[in-house]
Structures are given as C-alpha cells and as structure tokens.
Design a protein around this nucleic acid. Structure first.
Lengths: 240, 240
DNA sequence: CTCGTTTTCGCCCATCAGGCGAAAACAGGC
DNA sequence: GCCTGTTTTCGCCTGATGGGCGAAAACGAG
C-alpha cells in the first residue's frame, strides 16, 4: 500500500504555533505571508526548525519571540503532530509539532511587516484563507481545542485582560465559541467554579449611560481544569 | 541558558505506544524488556523509528503489529510529543510522538517472549516500574488521558468486549479510573447519553446463583464525545 | 419452599445549567 | 428635579443530570 520508498530523504522537525486572539469581536490568528517558494504569497503560521539543544516547547517560544512579544502570550500548549510525508514539498521532509497560543484581548502586539491577523472562519470554510501547506488544518485544530477547553477549564483568563466586566467577557467567549453566550449564565458558571472574583471596582458607563459594570478578574491565571467535568467521580469527592 | 551546542547531531523521529488493557481487575500496559544498551534490562514501550514514507499514525500501527495483533487494538490516539534533547542517549537525538492504545478485556493477545503486561501504578508511584528512558512519563500521560476521556466520551467501548453485563463494565471502569464505580450510576449515565443499548440476551448467573444479568453493548464503537460535557452550549442545542 | 445471592428498578435528593423578568444604577433631556 | 432610555445585576423558577439507597425481581442450592 505504501508507495516505493524514495531514495533516503533527510528528515527534520519543525514547530508551528497558531496564536489566537479575539480582535474586534472575532477570533483571529497570527500568520505571515511567505515571500519565497514553496507557496509564495500564501499565509503561514509562525515557527521553524527545531534546534539540537531545545525541546519543542522551548523552540516554539524562541520562534514566537521573533513575531510577537512573548510576555503577551498568556497560554501555550501542545496540539498535535502533523506528519504527512508530503505535507511540505522539498528535499527534506518536515514533521511538525503544532501548538496553540492565546493572547489576551487588551494587548495589540507589534508584528513584523509580513505578519498580520486573520479571522478564523467557522467550521465549513477553511479556518485560514490562502493557507500555506497544511496550516489551515492546524488552525482548525487550535480553534477546536480552544472551544472545548473554554467550557471545562478557566482558559478564559488567557483571552481576557487582567480586569474586565461581565459584558466584555461575554463578548470574548461569544467570539471564541462562535455562538451567543448569556452573560447571566456565564457569570454564574464561572463564579460557581470559583474561577471569577470581583475586584470591587466598577467600570464607567458607556456613552449611552446605564448602570456601571462591576469589574472582575480570574482567580487563577494558570490553567485549571474544573474537577466537576469529570463524571463518575470517586465517592469521597463529595466534601467541600 | 542553553548549554553550548554540540557538534551537529543527527535527529530522528520515533513513535511509541502505551497500549493499555484491563487484565485481572487492574489496568496494565504492554512493554518489552531491552536486551542491549542503552538501558539493558529495563522495560520499554513498543515503537521505533519513523520511516520516510509514513506518517506517525501509520508508523505506530506498523510497529505495534510486531508486538500484538492490530485487530485487537480498539482505539489508538495521539498523546503528545516528548522532545527533551537528552531523553535518549546516543549519537542521534530522538524526538518521540507518543500514542495511547486500548485493547478490550476479552482478548489475550499473543506477545513475543521479551514482552509482557505490567500493572500501571497509581499516581504517586512511577506508572511503570524499571522504565527505560522517559517511558514511565508516557504511561502516566496515557493513564491520565484514559481517565479523563472515560468520563466524557464513549471510550469504554475500547476496554469492553462487544457484549457485557453492567457488573463487568463496572469493574472495567473501576480498574481504569482507579476508584470504585457505582453500577447503578454507571448504567444511568451511559444510558442517558445513548451510549448503551441492551442486546436482549442475558448472561448465565455465577456459581452462587443470583439474578441473571442483562447483556449490553455500546451503540457506537468509534469515539464519540458527549455533547453535554460542553457547558455554555449554544441556545439552539436545546432540541432533542 | 426457603434462604442467600446478584441484578435491576424506582424513588428521592442535591447540584447545576439555563431562562426570564424585575430591580438597581447610571446619562441625558425636559 | 423628574422622567426616559440604557445597561447591568440579581432573584426566582425550571429542567436535566449525577448520585445514593432500598425494595423488588430472578436465579441456584439445600
């Protein structure tokens, strides 16, 4: 079933990152436009070859630093390996470890001239228009991972500024999830899980007036999995 | 912070699989005992080098076929990449893509002489005793993945025979989860999610008598994620 | 027929997601 | 100062779901 093995071909390893941010009410991904073949003019994810002395996470952080200020990436996690032998044309075969990165909505990172944000399209469409190689599939995986983890972890902290109103948070979730989100329910769910804490301060009302909104922050700014998402819990988990 | 880069070092890619099965009421993992250095005498996961013309999934299936009958592996999925530069000593550096595989409890695969099943220890202990390289960490990841997915997917199908009683299924879940599971609750949860269907047949009672148990099967023998696990559902998800 | 065993089912409860509307708190205009 | 429109917040209700318990059902053995 495998085609005849070609003459020995060098194999390399690269890392790629789908860096996501909610910008202007839409989920967007950072990509740069290739100048040289292969795939000139098409949009690629930041990344590059794995060096001899670094592991994949160190590598992706190093390579991301060339595109954005790393202090602005609030969360970074491994997605999966893309390893189709023909995923990248060329003399050397490239196996890729893909990551998803998240940038809070309050920062607007400076990016190089060839780099720009692109809206991540909804499932039927390719997640990234005019993608280089298999990068559209990677973005689609990243979107799906974000969507899933938003509902059973505190991952919202990586999309939101340090302090925010419930309305603002609602818009972030709606953009990332791709469907409307009830502010009432969002606050209740997050609060019940002890992920949200009021700061005590309030935000000034908008130009149309209205009651000033209370400011909240996430209690934790590191990933925390909701224990309640595990059904068939052990019997002793009833305390607290 | 990185140590001085050594003289150019060849990099290779390997795949590894933590194949899990519930045997004798305990979760166990398939491993083989190394004969040659490095790490002679220690236990390693099945796997090997990625070939030029195969992707990682094809590769792990090929390599697993050398250890067990592949038709007996009911589920196989990518875990994550292990890429510490020093994870494997030697002239060539090896980056590993780890998989988790699941074998239903009703089969007892024929394995080579150097290969055996090992009980997967609970979290405080190393998941695999006398492990080669970083393979204990891979087994720990596999156990954790299984534990999580059992509660929000139908992954039980990959641990269970085609037909089973609720009691038998309860024991499988208890072994895989590492804590007691209520038969009543297990049946209710799986049934409510439409994952379980009665076959109509009953199993003969044990030697001590008792009411004969009804036989069930999973409605699906492919991975299905429970939609209910996603909190903050879209409004239109109310139908059905 | 009675007893012990195992399974199955019904009932109850607590928790949680989700929806809705009233009340609270502001700006602006009369 | 008061009224209106706007936005946020809170309380109440509902339905779904996980979890526990005990009674009833269905068997083998003496």
């Amino acid at each position: 079933m495998a085609r005849p093995s070609p003459a020995a071909r060098a194999t390399g390893h690269e890392v790629l990152a789908a860096v996501l941010q909610v910008r202007g009410g839409r989920l967007q991904v950072l990509a740069w436009q290739r100048a040289l073949p292969p795939h000139p003019g098409r949009w690629a994810l930041p990344g590059g070859r794995l060096r001899d002395d670094e592991d994949v996470e160190t590598s992706v952080r190093r390579q991301l630093a060339e595109k954005v200020d790393l202090r602005e990436v609030a969360h970074l996690e491994q997605l999966s390996v893309f390893s189709d032998p023909d995923r990248v044309p060329g003399r050397t075969r490239l196996v890729a470890t893909a990551f998803v990165g998240l940038v809070p909505s309050h920062v607007d990172p400076a990016v190089p001239a060839d780099t720009a944000w692109h809206a991540v399209a909804a499932p039927p469409e390719p997640a990234l228009p005019e993608p280089a190689f298999d990068h559209a599939a990677i973005v689609a995986d990243a979107r799906e991972r974000l969507r899933a983890k938003l509902s059973y972890t505190n991952l919202g902290f990586a999309l939101a500024p340090p302090e925010f109103t419930i309305s603002a948070l609602r818009e972030l979730y709606a953009a990332a999830l791709g469907h409307p989100v009830s502010a009432t329910n969002l606050q209740r769910v997050l609060a019940r899980r002890d992920l949200l804490a009021p700061t005590g301060a309030v935000a000034p009302p908008g130009p149309a007036g209205g009651r000033p909104a209370a400011l909240f922050r996430f209690t934790d700014r590191a990933l925390r999995v909701t224990d309640a998402f595990a059904v068939l819990r052990p019997p002793e988990a009833r305390e607290g």
